[in-house]
């Protein structure tokens, strides 16, 4: 007895989720930040963010289809993190890395916060 491990399965699944997003298929929540709207899949948000996990596992909020985030959240930072959730690639521009880190902290994405912090420190040292 044994098993076959498909080593690229996780990436193939995430790529398909990103294709669903780009074609607006099965999107079940709109995130509003200061007038900007972002459509997404609740399942992906919950899988990647502690904040969304808390929101969508709360029986009183689990069926919300529109969520307004604190207006102090930066939409550009959120857009970078939403792309990260669907691609595993985190865009790091010098001008936005601090905003990205602060938004990741707000979304309770601690590993991304740590990575941004290390990136900032390395840039300061170089």
């Amino acid at each position: 007895d044994g098993c076959i491990q498909f080593t690229r399965h996780a990436g193939d699944v995430l790529l398909n989720f990103n294709r669903l997003r780009s074609r607006n298929i099965l999107m079940d929540v709109t995130i509003q930040i200061d007038g900007q709207r972002f459509c997404a899949h609740r399942a992906v948000l919950v899988a990647c963010s502690g904040l969304f996990y808390s929101i969508f596992t709360d029986p009183l909020k689990s069926n919300l289809s529109a969520i307004s985030l604190d207006p102090t959240v930066d939409p550009d930072g959120f857009a970078i993190l939403l792309d990260f959730m669907y691609t595993s690639t985190l865009t790091l521009k010098d001008s936005l890395v601090l905003v990205t880190m602060n938004t990741a902290s707000y979304l309770q994405m601690e590993h991304v916060v740590d990575t941004c912090r290390r990136f900032i420190k390395s840039r300061e040292q170089s």
């Binding site: 007895d1 044994g2 076959i4 498909f6 193939d12 398909n16 294709r19």
Partner: peptide, 21 residues
């Protein structure tokens, strides 16, 4: 699944959703 008679399949595992229909 590491170790016990594990065969690693490097190829695609599922269908690819097209960019548009």
């Amino acid at each position: 699944y590491e170790g016990v008679n594990t065969i690693k399949e490097m190829g695609r595992s599922i269908h690819e959703i097209p960019r548009q229909e």
